[in-house]
Design a binder for these strands. Structure first.
Length: 423
DNA sequence: TCTGGGGTCCTAGGACCC
DNA sequence: TCTGGGGTCCTAGGACCC
């Protein structure tokens, strides 16, 4: 049997790189991208890394950033999502099979390809040329090793040109021995603590550890990680993303809310958005969960959080039905007198249309509802999200997300297209 | 004043059934 | 004199990912 080979292609500082695509004047300016509500730092260009840690609250470091000439941007997910699709399309045209793993990463199947490094360089060059996004490529016999090779490609980019192939056992072992165990995919903070206590400090140590012991002491997850580091594939390439088993729409408000009315608007808005995602994957849901809470970080603020699960009369994807149920849930859990910071809608108990059998007398969603929803989605697909929406959902809500530093939506809004004469 | 959002998988423990 | 054991399903919570 032919030995499997995976490549992991990953975009460098993806969000920050996206901001630079249409602003070449920023190529030598360090930049960071902020989370929703301009909360904390979620991406940094390479030259901004010395000035700011990942996840730092923006309001605490604003001054320091300005003094060091670091520019901050609100996150612009419409832009990042669109550029991501273009990047994936380019990679897909160059490899036999691709699994899009996240907005900025993909695994490719390189099994049976001879000139792997050459292909890796070709991918980097084409993606850069056609989208403007810099990438790194790691190549190895398992996904976990490919991830590690990718980290190595980044760390020693000057030496390897952004492509690292560790299919050769000697190169593989050399990398394993220098990589700390917490850089391994699947080893988070807690697992790192446990492993360190056991004397497992490098990726090499984990590869040598007794896999059965790891399974007994922790779980099958870390056992697989250790086996993958040794070169035994436990994870396969998954080209078609399976339908999600739960769908969540949650967001902090731009400011604290005290009354139920604006929270009703927010809950309706999030529920409507969750329903769009639900229909996009062709599922129906039977239960929904509504939750609200106050801020969590400020010790001065009184804390309060409640959630409720509501059962729908039948599995549905009808925005009207689900919004109504969500608002009933909200009425049941809302208590006046708190400073609310966030609401959350989860769609649970999802099933694919036609893939479940109900009992003969169970109520099912009326056919007309599906037709109404497909017309709604079609109109919104053509004219933009929110063109047709429940009356509960405001266009420009007072409680909306704070995004004071957002760049234009160069590729997804007609009125904000990049314009050559602007520069 | 101010700290993201959206997921997955695994495990333990309780409820329930026969 | 005497109170089983095995199996499944569901839920909550933890850990991890980007």
């Amino acid at each position: 049997m032919v030995e499997q080979v995976f490549a992991l292609i990953d975009c460098n500082s993806f969000y920050a790189s996206c901001e630079r695509v249409f602003r070449p004047d920023l190529n030598r300016v360090p930049i960071v991208v902020l989370s929703n509500n301009d909360g904390c730092v979620i991406a940094r260009s390479a030259d901004a890394k010395p000035f700011v840690k990942m996840g730092e609250p923006y309001h605490q470091i604003k001054g320091a950033l300005q003094r060091n000439g670091v520019l901050a941007f609100s996150s612009n997910y419409a832009l990042y999502g669109d550029i991501s699709e273009r990047v994936m399309t380019v990679i897909e045209s160059l490899v036999p099979a691709l699994e899009v793993y996240s907005i900025d990463e993909a695994f490719a199947d390189l099994t049976g390809i001879d000139q792997r490094e050459k292909l890796g360089r070709e991918i980097r060059a084409q993606v850069l040329k056609l989208t403007g996004i810099p990438t790194g490529v790691g190549i190895a016999q398992t996904k976990t090793l490919a991830k590690l090779a990718n980290a190595g490609a980044k760390r020693w980019q000057k030496q390897n040109g952004g492509v690292l192939d560790i299919c050769d056992p000697q190169r593989r072992d050399k990398l394993l021995k220098v990589m700390p165990v917490d850089e391994v995919w699947g080893v988070g903070r807690r697992m790192n603590e446990h492993l360190t206590a056991m004397g497992i400090k490098t990726a090499w140590d984990l590869a040598q550890a007794d896999a059965w012991l790891l399974r007994k002491q922790f779980s099958v997850v870390i056992e697989k990680t250790a086996r993958e580091l040794r070169g035994t594939p436990c994870l396969a390439l998954e080209e078609a993303a399976p339908a999600k088993q739960e769908i969540c729409s949650s967001r902090a408000f731009g400011q604290r809310l005290y009354e139920i009315e604006p929270i009703r608007e927010a809950v309706a808005t999030y529920a409507a958005r969750a329903c769009e995602k639900l229909r996009a994957q062709g599922s129906l849901c039977k239960r929904i969960r509504v939750a609200i809470r106050t801020g969590m970080f400020n010790p001065e603020e009184a804390k309060f959080a409640r959630g409720i699960v509501c059962e729908l009369p039948y599995p549905s994807d009808d925005t009207r039905l689900i919004v109504r149920a969500a608002l009933q849930g909200l009425d049941a859990i809302f208590r006046a007198g708190h400073a609310y910071a966030k609401a959350e809608i989860m769609l649970l108990d999802l099933r694919q249309r036609g893939e479940f059998t109900d009992d003969l007398f169970a109520e099912v969603q009326p056919v007309a509802a599906a037709k109404v929803m497909s017309v709604l989605d079609e109109i919104n697909g053509r004219w933009g999200r929110g063109t047709l929406r429940p009356a509960r959902v405001p266009i420009a809500p007072g409680w909306g997300m704070k995004r004071e530093l957002k760049s234009p939506s160069y590729t997804t809004r007609w009125d904000q297209l990049w314009c050559a004469s602007c520069r």
